[in-house]
Design a protein around this nucleic acid. Structure first.
Length: 267
DNA sequence: ATGGTCGTCCCACGA
């Protein structure tokens, strides 16, 4: 069994204590991290390596930045989403992980990507155009990855609330870039390639939020959105045993505004 | 309540 989590940490430097406390409690084998908001020189590498993780990161000063943590050997396959040379925004990293089989010493290869999809607000500006173009590129790349027929997890902050049941106030958020029909259609077309949403595969209840704005007591009132997702290839979905949203980190002191989503695969 | 909160970095901007 291998446990994989995605977590938008909203600055790894500002929230390192919260993150390491969560790593110690949840013990994920693989973490797909977003919004590290630093380059390599500022990344608190030792604190995380001390907990037994290998680290691969694509950083950026002030904004964005993604990373993969893995307790098993990790090699980097992509440091950017293909299709836009010269794009400076650090929003994609993809790696291969060698997972030792619980049985006869056989090894399974797991491919993962950490995705920080553009927010896109305000809708109707070049920011929204960039978001939709980025989603087009992601779909193209996700389609080509499926041909490899690997155990594959595309996890991250998608900045997409797939349906009204994923939003505390669907009417109020209707025109937001996270909820616009074009955004939801692009997300569905990604799923329709053959990916499985690890939460929705096992849970039917609405309001499984992963993000709560810092403002206006949103956390206390459970006014959130489900925008962090783990998308599984068929080979990964066949191995899915459990999934969930870990609300604990969001309730601690100095939290990120997101909380981790996790799944377990029988490998 | 012509705002409410964060992180980054020093001035607003992004979320």
């Amino acid at each position: 069994m291998i446990r994989i989590a995605t977590f938008n940490v909203n600055s790894i430097k500002a929230h390192i204590v919260n993150v390491t406390n969560w790593l110690k409690a949840a013990k994920p084998d693989v973490v797909l991290m977003q919004e590290i908001k630093t380059t390599d020189d500022g990344f608190p590498r030792l604190e995380i390596e001390d907990l037994g993780y290998n680290i691969a990161a694509v950083g950026q000063k002030t904004y964005n930045g993604v990373a993969i943590l893995s307790k098993h050997p990790l090699t980097v396959e992509q440091r950017a989403l293909p299709g836009h040379p010269g794009d400076e925004q650090a929003r994609y990293i993809e790696g291969l992980i060698e997972v030792p089989d619980s049985g006869k010493g056989k090894r399974t290869v797991l491919r993962v990507a950490s995705i920080y999809l553009p927010n896109g607000n305000p809708a109707g500006t070049e920011k929204f155009t960039y978001k939709l173009a980025w989603m087009d590129r992601l779909r193209d790349h996700a389609a080509s990855l499926l041909k490899l027929e690997e155990v594959l997890v595309l996890g991250g902050d998608y900045n997409v609330a797939p349906a009204d049941e994923d939003v505390y106030d669907p009417e109020g958020w209707r025109d937001d870039a996270l909820c616009k029909p074009e955004t939801r259609r692009a997300f569905r077309s990604l799923l329709n390639l053959g990916y499985t949403d690890a939460i929705r595969a096992l849970h039917t209840q609405p309001h499984l939020y992963t993000f709560w704005d810092y403002q206006a007591g949103c956390w206390q009132r459970d006014e959130g959105l489900r925008i962090d997702h783990l998308l599984l290839s068929p080979q990964a979905a066949d191995r899915l045993s459990e999934s969930g949203v870990d609300r604990d980190p969001r309730g601690k002191d100095k939290p990120s505004d997101h909380t981790p989503v996790w799944c377990e695969l029988d490998i």
